[in-house]
């Protein structure tokens, strides 16, 4: 399959009301399917809302066929593939910010957020466990990868997904808007757009970002979901601060064309990276360099 229609569900959510958020997911899945979408991506914590604090443990779900929240979503995934955001509770009651990839009634992959921002206005590390794995996975559209918000503020997770074979990176966010100045977009929006464009360019991959909208108390979520192609060109962008379903057809053959011109993946010297990382990390002065 060379062509794929992506849909980005730039939605608002009800804080802690999983049932009403689930209904919105199912409605949008129908709508996206009717519009010809093959894959629908929801933002971070799309089933629960973002600033959960003490709600975290009460809104968690396990992504299994017998879970009452996941069952209808898995049924919907027979029509089109879905990425949904939720709180995952593992068998030992650790709570993770998670996104699940659902396809054909199966859970193909679950990503646990590996970087939990706990600074400034963020307090995720207080309420959630840190994910410990960054892995690409195979789908009917090829090999993909999922990252959640702060994961891709760090350069290493997209880099690892790239090396693990992901040609389409799906980023999910609940990004609070901040940094109002003269510019027509917030600093937080500009930053995320810069790095999404940079990852698409550096790794010659498709990068699709679904960000939510709405408010939670005084926080606004800015939307502006985007799709960048392997040349770093913007293919689609949702509006700021408005609920939207953004559809974008992507041509996977573009990866072939771009990498023929620009063989960055072919020339990436992973063994060199490994050697140097080992040297840097084993060096007695690593603490002094702030490495952990």
């Amino acid at each position: 399959m060379n062509k794929l229609t992506l849909a980005l569900a730039q939605i608002n959510t009800h804080l802690g009301d999983v049932q009403s958020n689930l209904e919105k997911h199912l409605q949008l899945a129908q709508e996206a399917h009717a519009s010809g979408a093959d894959l629908l991506v929801f933002p971070e914590l799309s089933l629960t809302g973002y600033v959960l604090q003490d709600l975290a443990s009460t809104v968690s779900n396990r992504p299994t066929a017998d879970n009452p929240v996941f069952k209808p979503l898995l049924d919907a995934s027979r029509q089109l593939d879905l990425v949904v955001g939720f709180v995952d509770e593992d068998s030992r009651s650790r709570f993770y910010i998670a996104s699940a990839y659902l396809s054909g009634g199966e859970v193909l992959h679950v990503h646990h957020k590996v970087y939990l921002p706990t600074y400034g206005l963020f307090d995720e590390g207080r309420f959630f466990a840190w994910g410990d794995s960054i892995q690409a996975f195979d789908t009917r559209f090829g090999r993909l990868g999922i990252l959640i918000c702060e994961d891709f503020w760090h350069a290493s997770p997209p880099y690892l997904l790239w090396l693990d074979g992901a040609d389409l990176m799906l980023f999910a966010s609940a990004s609070p808007g901040r940094g109002l100045n003269q510019a027509p977009e917030l600093e937080s929006a500009r930053w995320v757009e810069h790095i999404n464009k940079a990852y698409a360019s550096l790794f010659t991959v498709y990068v699709a970002h679904a960000n939510r909208v709405g408010y939670e108390d005084g926080l606004n979520f800015w939307g502006g979901s985007t799709v960048y192609d392997p040349n770093g060109e913007l293919l689609a962008k949702g509006p700021y601060h408005m609920e939207t379903l953004t559809l974008c057809e992507i041509d996977l053959q573009q990866i072939h064309r771009t990498r023929t011109r620009l063989p960055l993946l072919r020339d990436e010297r992973t063994a060199l990276v490994m050697r140097e990382l080992q040297r840097i990390l084993s060096d007695g002065r690593s603490t002094q360099k702030g490495i952990r």
Binding site: G177, L180, N181, L186, Y215, N220, Y240, H241
Partner: peptide, 22 residues
């Protein structure tokens, strides 16, 4: 120390805030 803001963006965010939170 330029405190200039984009007033269209401020207006969008603040009216949305008032409407939503009320």
């Amino acid at each position: 120390t330029d405190l200039t803001i984009n007033t269209d963006l401020a207006r969008t965010i603040l009216t949305g805030f008032i409407r939503t939170e009320i």
